[in-house]
């Protein structure tokens, strides 16, 4: 019962994070990728990474937890889920920043090729 409740809380938390991140992440991905279908593809990849990363961290935390109390095991699942969400958000942010920087460098070098005298 405790484990089920903590699993529901972690799943709900990842759903809320996805809902909150959807619009800003799609906007920045559209800016970086230019084309709509590419932005939507990378949004799907980010969402899958966030959900799977959170579930993986929650289950790992339960496996590592050595507590015999059920409520402590449930808290360990919660802790793992929150840590997984944080790590997944950091991974998505770092990936977006790296791709954005790469796109900026490509655009600058294309500008340089277009006007070599400047």
């Amino acid at each position: 019962m405790w484990l089920l409740a903590s699993g529901v809380v972690v799943a709900g938390g990842s759903g809320v994070v996805l809902w909150l991140l959807r619009a800003p992440l799609l906007a920045i991905l559209l800016e970086v990728c230019v084309l709509d279908h590419r932005a939507r593809f990378w949004w799907r990849v980010s969402a899958a990474e966030l959900v799977v990363g959170t579930a993986f961290c929650a289950s790992t935390s339960l496996a590592v937890s050595s507590s015999t109390d059920r409520w402590l095991s449930a808290v360990a699942v919660l802790r793992g889920g929150y840590a997984g969400l944080l790590v997944s958000i950091a991974a998505v942010t770092v990936g977006t920043m790296a791709v954005g920087r790469g796109a900026q460098v490509t655009a600058q070098s294309a500008d340089g090729r277009r006007s070599p005298g400047s």
Partner: peptide
């Protein structure tokens, strides 16, 4: 778009 994304990420990081 960038400022909105980083504002959302920062808020989520604080709450989480």
């Amino acid at each position: 778009a960038r400022s909105g994304f980083f504002a959302a990420v920062t808020g989520l990081t604080i709450v989480l």
